[in-house]
Design a protein around this nucleic acid. Sequence first.
DNA 1: GGCATGACTACCG
DNA 2: GCGGTAGCCATGC
Length: 105
Amino acid sequence: MRDFYTNVYEIVDQIPFGRVTTYGAIANALGVRKSSRLVGIAMNHSHCVAPALPSHRVVNRVGLLTGKHHFAGERLMEQLLVNEGIVIINNQVQDFKRIFWDPLD
DNA sequence: GGCATGACTACCG
DNA sequence: GCGGTAGCCATGC
């Protein structure tokens, strides 16, 4: 098995345009639901390893943009999502359940 | 090889 | 319903 990070990157890379997923869902897809935190950490490292990674499409389980502060600008993550037709209100993805994408799907 | 860390989640009062 | 607490585990020092 390759590095855990690499696995996470591959999942994130498969997130369709205009859709989002959660750290827990990714961890679950990797068979390690309990390691959801590692997914977030992998994202944190991703910015220098895989800049093209759509990490802005990954949010926490309720659709909250918990990782927005790790982006260059305060509104960058939100901007990117809105740019894909996703509505963000108060740092939270609207219609989250509808645009949620399950990696196992 | 032991210890701290973290973009999470689930549980409890 | 909300804030605090605990579990989890790969990675880096």
